[in-house]
Design a protein around this nucleic acid. Structure first.
Lengths: 202, 202
DNA sequence: TCCGATATGTTGACATCGTACACATCCGGC
DNA sequence: GCCGGATGTGTACGATGTCAACATATCGGA
């Protein structure tokens, strides 16, 4: 029954095959839907084979989470590239709404990316969605739209606001809002955060 | 071995006993640490007995989550009662910091309360932490500190901000901040949200 | 008071899961 | 050409969620 669906004994690139399978699984069901056995099954490989590449299920989950974050960052930067003419403030708004939009569109992936612990790279070489946020904030300072002393630490209120709303919308009370209401609330959240930064222009 | 540690055949109040056991389990390890079998073991009962009270593991989890939310709301209202002399704005700040404080102090419970889906009661008869927030906002309007047309929907930016920061601090990048840095960031988040409430439209 | 319906617990079983250990097979450098 | 390390297989173990058949307690009406 565990007929390997391939001709060679070795797989070739099992590690990424497992991550790919995991992406499919988590996309629909979130982190809980990841099963080591199911992933190996889809890769056409025996369960134990996974342990040559990951110490345990959790390590596979983290690898998947990293891939999702990269993908998310790419999408957000791509949409940002199309709007290079926007002001820093406008870009900040777009980034925030993009973050929330991703969370609502790709529920399972979003949960996976952020429910696994200890996974966000932070400052060093950040491949995270954070990069787009940092760029927009810097632009606001350059454009004189944000006082330099209000700039330091400004990431936290912005990130917290969109992150929090995304989660409230996924498995919180905001899930029961209609699509239009939810969108309105999302914009309210983003605009409130921006206004609260202490920007000079308003 | 499955010696019932009790004299009567029936347990008496198994339902709440299971929830209590679940509270112990999730307090340390979050939602993932809840095991139906372990809960029944602690209640001195066979695994299947749980199914007389809960359809499945998830239903038990939701009951536990509800209890945690009630407890959280109580604590926040208690701390609020001690500060009845504060202005609405000050109370709003205290509620926000209290929310974040609870999340950091009771990590497992906080995760449990909000990771289970479809659990927040919303407006009707709300026993949630939301109540304290609503009160503070209403007070601000009464005190002329918040324009009435800025009041509607003001819950979202506030809740989203503290909720988001709590999660970033639990298993996000904010986890790597020192306690002092984290506290500073928390205050920044809360103050930004409050300041942003100011005007009405975008 | 007895008696049967109903609620509650127990036993035993099944499929699935993560993980470990011993063994098989392939690939690259001497 | 051979040998060691890397990679994949087979089998097994304990734990988990869940189910069906059975046992026992409780309670309301004859």
């Amino acid at each position: 029954m565990p007929q390997p669906a391939r001709d060679t004994y070795h797989h070739g690139d099992l590690r990424t095959a497992l991550v790919d399978a995991g992406l499919e699984l988590t996309r629909a069901g979130g982190p809980a839907a990841l099963s080591l056995r199911e992933a190996t099954r889809r890769a056409g490989v025996s369960p134990s084979a996974a342990y040559r590449h990951f110490a345990d299920r959790d390590e596979l989950l983290q690898a998947i989470a990293r891939r999702i974050q990269d993908d998310m960052a790419e999408r957000m930067q791509a949409s940002r590239a199309g709007t290079a003419a926007l002001s820093g403030r406008e870009r900040l708004r777009a980034v925030g709404l993009g973050y929330i939009g991703f969370a609502l569109r790709e529920t399972g992936w979003f949960e996976t990316a952020f429910f696994t612990s200890n996974v966000l790279p932070g400052e060093a070489g950040m491949p995270t969605p954070l990069a787009a946020l940092v760029d927009a904030l810097d632009a606001m300072v350059r454009e004189g739209d944000l006082p330099p002393d209000a700039r330091v630490g400004a990431e936290w209120p912005c990130w917290a606001a969109v992150h929090g709303f995304a989660l409230l919308a996924l498995h919180g009370p905001a899930a029961r809002l209609s699509a239009a209401e939810r969108q309105a609330a999302a914009e309210r959240v983003v605009d409130t955060a921006i206004r609260g930064l202490g920007a000079s222009g308003r």
